[in-house]
Amino acid sequence: MPGDAPGRTDVQTMTSWSVPVVWEGTFDPVLLDSLYQAKNLTIAATVFAVGKYIRFLKKFLETMEQHFFTGFNVHVFVFTDQPNEVPKVKMASGRQRTVKTVPTLNRWQDISASRMLLVLTLIEEELRDYADFIFCLDVDSEFHGRWGTESLGDLVGVLHPGYYKSDRSGFPYERRPISKAYMAPEEGDFYYCGGAFGGNLQEVERFCQTCSINFWDDRIKGIEAAWQEESHLNRYMWINKPSKVLSPEYLWQDFLARNPEIHLIRFSGIVKNYAEIRPNV
């Protein structure tokens, strides 16, 4: 759908609530970086490498060092059940990594769902005093291009690469009214991916707290949303609109053909055999 930002007329560049949809060609990276450099920001990032997903961590960290907020203060928190297997990746000045040990879980759905609570705890106990923004990213992914200050906002969602061209009726929202993630047929703006989201600490804290409460409310009722945390994320972002929306450049899927409007893939989920890497399917 055509937008109205300079440089792109082939894609939607503004939401119905008047916030940017960020695509290559819709921002000036040099200008943005110069504005934010003076603020001496610290960007936190979380990544979960549990079970066989540990195999993806090295490439994730190496490519992150090359493309994710280069030239800024970055603190990466690696959550893993195998702390001794975390690879040693050299980091530039102003960048650091902390390893957090978490228990091994037998269901990938539980691994996925536990992330919200762990991120919430991290913000409340460690990040309040020094980090400005936080991004939560999937480990089975790699960076290929710049991910920087153009992505900053109070609450930031990423358009799912499988559904950004779909009509709302085709979005895989949770459709059972009993679930806290329920989306009625007339509800929803976009379908956001669960593998990348972020924002300032206050907004991400509120988001993680709400999603954790809703997830456990569902569990007490004996149900699980269709796509676990992603379903709850989509419900939350329908009610609490993101202040910035990132295009599918920010989490493409490597098995998809690259569409003409995708001028640059910045971050992408790699092709993998889920039956082999997940503890259950």
Rank of each mutant, 00 (worst) to 15 (best):
A225S: 11
E276P: 14
N259Y: 11
L251C: 07
E203K: 08
D254C: 08
N240P: 05
A226K: 06
M237R: 13
E249W: 01
E276G: 10
D218I: 09
R206Q: 08
G269L: 05
V245P: 05
D254G: 07
S212I: 00
N200M: 07
N214G: 06
E249M: 11
W252Y: 09
D217W: 12
Y192G: 05
Y192M: 12
E249T: 02
K272Y: 14
L256Q: 11
Y274W: 15
F215V: 13
A196T: 13
E229T: 06
E276Y: 05
K272C: 09
E205A: 12
I265S: 06
N200F: 00
N273R: 13
Y274T: 14
S231C: 08
E205M: 08
T210M: 08
M237I: 03
C208V: 01
Q202V: 12
Y191Q: 11
I239P: 07
A196K: 08
G199Y: 14
F267P: 00
A257K: 15
E224F: 04
G195Y: 03
V204L: 12
L233C: 12
E203P: 12
G222R: 07
G199P: 02
C193Y: 03
Y250V: 06
R206A: 13
L246P: 01
N214A: 08
V204P: 15
Y274D: 15
I223T: 00
L201T: 05
F255A: 11
E229W: 15
Q253H: 15
Y236E: 02
Q209L: 04
F207N: 08
L251V: 04
L201F: 00
E203H: 15
I277S: 13
Q228A: 04
L264D: 11
I220K: 01
H263P: 04
L201P: 07
A257G: 10
S212L: 01
K221A: 15
P242M: 10
N214T: 04
W238T: 08
V204S: 13
W227G: 05
F197P: 02
I262A: 14
L264I: 03
Y250C: 06
S247G: 03
D218R: 10
I239Y: 12
E261T: 10
K221W: 08
S247R: 00
D254K: 09
L233S: 11
C193K: 04
F207E: 11
I265F: 07
E205I: 06
I277W: 14
G198K: 03
A196Y: 02
E203I: 02
Y274L: 14
V271D: 15
F197I: 01
N214F: 06
L233K: 10
G198F: 00
G222Q: 14
N240H: 03
W252Q: 03
G195H: 10
W252P: 00
N234S: 09
F255N: 08
H232S: 01
N200A: 03
S247V: 00
R206D: 11
M237D: 05
L233N: 11
A225Q: 06
K272D: 08
L264V: 15
W227R: 10
I277N: 14
